[in-house]
Design a protein around this nucleic acid. Structure first.
Lengths: 207, 207
DNA sequence: ACCTGAACACCGTTCAAGT
DNA sequence: ACCTGAACACCGTTCAAGT
C-alpha cells in the first residue's frame, strides 16, 4: 500500500500520500449521507485520523473544499448525461433518457446537487475550474440539441438558448422534487419529469 | 405610539406590543439585505433592543422563525402572481406577465426565495401552515391554466400536472438566474424567461 | 407572561510550534 | 512541506433567575 511512497516512511510519515484527494472524497461521502450542514472540518479531519486544521494545507478554507466537491459532482453528472444520451441512440429517445438521468443524479445525490448549484457563484471564486466543469456538463445538452436540429427534430435557432430552456425545466423539476415540494409521493418527481419531457418535445419540434 | 397599550406601561413594559411580528419583519429584512447566513439570533434580537434569547418565547427555535419568514414570502409571492395574471387580462398576455412577475419576485428577494424553497420540507415541520401558504401561491397558476383550458388556449388534461410543469420551468429559470449560472449578463435571466414563456405557450397549446 | 444573563457545547479560522 | 494544539471569536440553545 505505502511501499511506493517516495522515501519509505522512517517512522510514520504524517498520514496520506494524498490527503487532498482523501479530504474531497470524505467530504463528498459525508455530504451525501448526512447533508451539507453535517459537514464540519473537525468531523472530516477526525474521520481521516488528521487534525481539523490539516486541511488548510490543501485548501484556503471550507468553501474551497466544497468547490472541489462541486467540481467532482459536475464531472460525474456530465458522464451520466453523456452516457444516457449515447445509450439512448442520440435521438428523442436519448433526449428522454438524458432527462431521466438528470433527475436520477439529483435524487441520488441530493445534498451534493444542492452544493453544485446552490453555492455556485460563491464557490466559483474559490476554484477557477469549477465554472469550466459546469460548462462541460451543460455542453452535453447543447450538443444533443444541435444533433436534434440537424436531424430536423428540433426547430432552428441558437442551440445554447434552447439548451438553457431545457436545462431550466429539468433543474426546476429536480429542485422541486429534492425540496419536497411535490408532496409525499416518491414517484411524483419521475412522473413530472416524464410529462415535462413530453411537453418539451412539443416545444422544441414546432415553431 | 404606545398610548393604546393595554395598561399604559408603568415603568417600561418589556419591549414591544408584538415582538413576534417585529422579529419576523426584522429577520426578513436581514435576510433580504445580507443573506440567510447573516441571520443570527443575536443580531436580530440586538437590532430590536432585545436579548438574543427573547425569541424563544415566540418560536421554538431558529427554524421556526425562518418558517414564519417563508410563509410571509409565499403570501407576498401569491399576491404578485395574482396581480400580474389579473392585470394582464387573464389570457396568454396574463400568463406571460405572471412568468415575468415570478422572476422579478425571485430576483428582488433572492435570499428570501431560497429560504421559501430550499428549506421547505424542514420548515414545514416547524409551521403547519407553511404548506398551505405555498399551495395557495401554486393555486394561482393552476387557476390560470384552467382558464386557458376553458378558452381553448391550452390543451385538456389535468391542470395540476400542467401547472407543475410550468412551475418547474419557471422555478428553474429563477434558480439558475439567482445562483449565477447564466453568466455575468444581468439581463440573461429575463431573456431566458421570455424565451421559456414563448416555448411553454407552444407546449401548452398543442397536443 | 415575558425577558435577561450566564453557561454549555458547538463552529471555522489563525498561528506559533513541532517534525 | 506537512501537521498539531491551543487560542480566538463566533454560533444556537438551555435554564435558573428576575419583574
Amino acid at each position: 500500500m505505502c511501499y511506493n511512497r517516495r522515501k519509505m516512511a522512517k517512522k510514520r510519515a504524517y498520514h496520506h500520500g494524498n490527503l487532498r484527494q482523501a479530504l474531497v472524497r470524505e467530504a463528498a461521502r459525508t455530504i451525501k449521507s448526512h447533508g451539507v450542514d453535517a459537514l464540519t472540518l473537525r468531523a472530516v479531519g477526525g474521520r481521516l485520523g488528521v487534525s481539523r486544521t490539516a486541511l488548510y494545507r490543501h485548501f484556503t478554507d471550507k468553501a474551497a473544499l466544497l468547490a472541489a466537491v462541486a467540481r467532482e459532482g459536475f464531472q460525474q453528472f456530465r458522464g451520466n448525461l453523456e452516457q444516457a444520451w449515447t445509450d439512448g441512440g442520440r435521438g428523442f429517445a436519448g433526449f428522454e433518457a438524458m432527462g431521466l438521468a438528470y433527475l436520477q443524479f439529483a435524487l441520488r445525490n441530493r445534498a451534493h446537487y444542492r452544493v453544485m448549484f446552490g453555492g455556485f457563484k460563491e464557490l466559483c471564486g474559490r476554484d477557477s475550474e469549477l465554472e469550466a466543469d459546469a460548462e462541460s456538463a451543460f455542453q452535453v445538452l447543447v450538443g444533443a440539441l444541435v444533433t436534434l436540429q440537424q436531424s430536423g427534430d428540433a426547430t432552428p435557432g441558437d442551440p445554447v438558448e434552447l439548451a438553457r430552456f431545457v436545462w431550466a425545466a429539468s433543474h426546476g423539476v429536480a429542485m422541486l422534487t429534492i425540496d419536497g415540494q411535490l408532496g409525499p409521493d416518491p414517484a411524483a418527481g419521475e412522473a413530472l419529469m416524464k410529462l415535462s419531457i413530453g411537453r418539451l418535445k412539443t416545444a422544441l419540434s414546432r415553431a
